[in-house]
């Protein structure tokens, strides 16, 4: 044998994957830390005196000073950040400046509402995109394909709120008036107790998601349908349905899955807009309200949560992309 003492790493793939995942988590924590600093600085930079927001315009200077001490606003920025971070790490997100409830308690119900909206939308987006995209690839350059391409391009080019507004106008007001234009879900109720209120917000999310994802699905399928193994399947006399679902789908899922998880991540931004269009009581509306009210602890908590969710979904996309690459 040769005196070449290089260690052989190819034969042990499992630790490598674990190490990779460990690195991702570490980077995640680091990213979130940086995000938390940014959030803190940005919210602190918002105009307006927090003590005055808490007490109203008629407060006396003494009272203002007392509140500032109580909120720790007299301390240095670093100390204030440290105080906040320690709270976040121990599960204490602070209290609302407006109604003095704990932020966690205030947001829990909102979070559930948003989650329901997001999950319902995704559950519809994925299969719908798959079907419409697949059909477009199959009927490439025909009328259906061109219509889908054109309309999805328009849907994606429009600002996010337009689709929701159009839907609300069409089905919630003058024209058909079959569905409530605003989703009034009382606090404490679970969202699915009010299915009619859910329809339009979910529809808006689904239209935006499908318009984007179905185009990615279409391209992935066109690639696969041009491959030699699909030509061979046609030459083997297999039925079109079998070719699409058994032969093309497993191969197209490779490039589609990471794209789908990215779409899920971007849906977070859509969520904020859609919730506000329909006044849906989720964290999106809570965020906009909180920004308007200068309710800093709520803004900080929501943005931090969204950053974390975004990071997780992005990492998921990476993991899935990696997995497909390794299988090739």
């Amino acid at each position: 044998m040769v005196a070449n003492a290089e260690p052989i790493i190819e034969s042990r793939p499992v630790p490598r994957v674990l190490r990779w995942l460990g690195m991702r988590v570490l980077f995640g924590v680091l990213t979130l830390f940086l995000v938390s600093v940014l959030i803190f600085l940005a919210t602190e930079a918002l105009p307006g005196d927090v003590a005055r927001i808490v007490l109203g315009t008629n407060a006396t200077p003494e009272k203002l000073a007392a509140v500032r001490v109580q909120l720790g606003l007299d301390q240095t920025l670093v100390a204030q950040y440290w105080h906040w971070l320690r709270g976040v790490l121990t599960g204490d997100l602070g209290t609302s400046l407006i109604n003095h409830y704990p932020v966690g308690e205030l947001l829990a119900g909102r979070l559930l509402n948003s989650l329901v909206l997001g999950v319902f939308a995704l559950v519809l987006i994925l299969p719908l995109s798959l079907l419409t995209g697949m059909l477009a690839a199959r009927l490439r350059d025909r009328f259906y394909d061109k219509t889908l391409l054109g309309s999805s391009m328009i849907a994606n080019a429009l600002p996010d709120f337009v689709i929701g507004t159009v839907l609300a106008a069409l089905f919630g007001t003058t024209l058909f008036h079959v569905l409530p234009p605003v989703a009034l879900i009382p606090p404490g109720d679970l969202p699915w107790w009010h299915p009619a209120d859910l329809v339009l917000p979910i529809a808006a999310m689904v239209i935006m998601g499908v318009a984007y994802l179905s185009r990615l699905v279409r391209v992935a399928f066109i690639d696969v349908l041009q491959s030699e193994y699909i030509q061979q399947a046609v030459l083997n006399g297999l039925s079109m349905r079998r070719i699409l679902f058994r032969h093309a789908l497993p191969n197209a899922l490779g490039p589609i899955t990471p794209a789908a998880s990215l779409v899920a991540a971007y849906s977070l931004a859509g969520l904020i807009v859609v919730e506000n269009v329909f006044s849906y009581p989720g964290i999106g509306t809570a965020l906009v309200d909180a920004v308007g009210n200068h309710d800093l602890p709520i803004v900080q908590a929501i943005v931090l949560f969204m950053a974390a969710a975004f990071y997780v979904l992005n990492t998921l996309a990476d993991v899935l992309a990696n997995r497909t690459r390794r299988r090739r």
Partner: peptide
């Protein structure tokens, strides 16, 4: 190599 479906 290209004509057999890699996934099946």
């Amino acid at each position: 190599g290209a004509a057999l479906n890699p996934a099946i």
